[in-house]
Amino acid sequence: MVTATSPAPVLDIDPFSVASLSDPRPVDEAIRESGEIVWIQKHGLWFTGRHSVAEAIFRDYETFESSAGTGVTNTKRAENWRKPSVILENDPPSHTKYRRIMTSVLSQRVVRRLTEGFQEQADRLVDEAVTAGEFDAAALAESFPLTVLPDAVGVNPEGREHLLPYSNLNFQAMGPRNELYDRAVEAAGEAATFVNWQMRREALAPGGLGHTIYGYVDEGEISEEDAGMLVRTFLSAGVDTTIFGIQFTLLALAEDPSAWAQLREDPALARKAFEEGLRWNAPSPYIGRTTARETEIAGVRLGEGEKVIMALGAANRDPRRFENPDVYDLSRDTSGHLAFGTGIHGCVGQMMARMEATCLLSALARRVETIELAGEPVRFLSNWLRGFEQLPVRVTLR
Rank of each mutant, 00 (worst) to 15 (best):
V195W: 09
T48G: 11
D60G: 09
E179F: 04
G343L: 08
R321K: 13
L88E: 11
S104A: 14
E224Y: 02
F64V: 05
V185P: 00
E62L: 04
E55D: 06
S167R: 02
E116V: 07
G387E: 01
E265Q: 09
E33K: 08
D12H: 14
E120F: 14
E304G: 05
A191T: 01
S223E: 09
H162T: 09
T295F: 01
Y216G: 02
S34H: 10
A188L: 05
E275G: 02
F234Q: 03
M1L: 09
D127G: 12
D256F: 05
N90A: 14
L164P: 00
E221K: 12
G117S: 14
E62V: 09
D12L: 15
R124M: 12
M355Y: 06
T63M: 06
L397I: 03
L381Y: 10
S335F: 14
G215H: 10
L21S: 10
D326S: 13
L149F: 04
N170Y: 11
V126Y: 00
T342M: 10
E36P: 00
V105W: 15
S167P: 00
Q121F: 08
T358D: 15
R366M: 08
S6M: 05
A187Q: 15
Y181S: 11
V38R: 02
K76M: 13
R124H: 09
N316W: 07
S104V: 13
V378M: 09
T212D: 14
Y216D: 06
Y166I: 08
L385D: 11
F47L: 07
V378I: 14
A254V: 00
R279N: 00
V239C: 05
G313E: 01
P7F: 08
I57Q: 13
V27I: 15
T103Y: 06
L209A: 12
Y216P: 05
T193L: 14
R201P: 01
V308Q: 07
Q121H: 06
T147K: 12
W46T: 01
L338E: 07
L385N: 11
D28T: 08
F171L: 05
I101M: 12
L250P: 04
D123C: 06
E224Q: 11
E65C: 15
G387N: 02
E33C: 07
C359K: 13
S34R: 07
G220D: 08
E190H: 10
Y214S: 11
L385H: 08
P26W: 01
N383S: 10
Q119H: 15
E389Y: 03
I57V: 13
W46A: 08
P165K: 07
R25N: 09
P392E: 02
D240M: 11
T63I: 12
K76P: 07
L397M: 12
P257H: 00
R317T: 04
D60W: 03
S236L: 08
I213N: 05
V111F: 12
G49S: 04
E372F: 09
S107R: 03
I37Q: 00
R386T: 15
L106C: 11
A141D: 04
T242V: 14
I13S: 03
A56Y: 05
R366V: 03
L360Y: 02
A237M: 11
A19D: 14
V239L: 15
V10P: 10
G154S: 09
L164S: 09
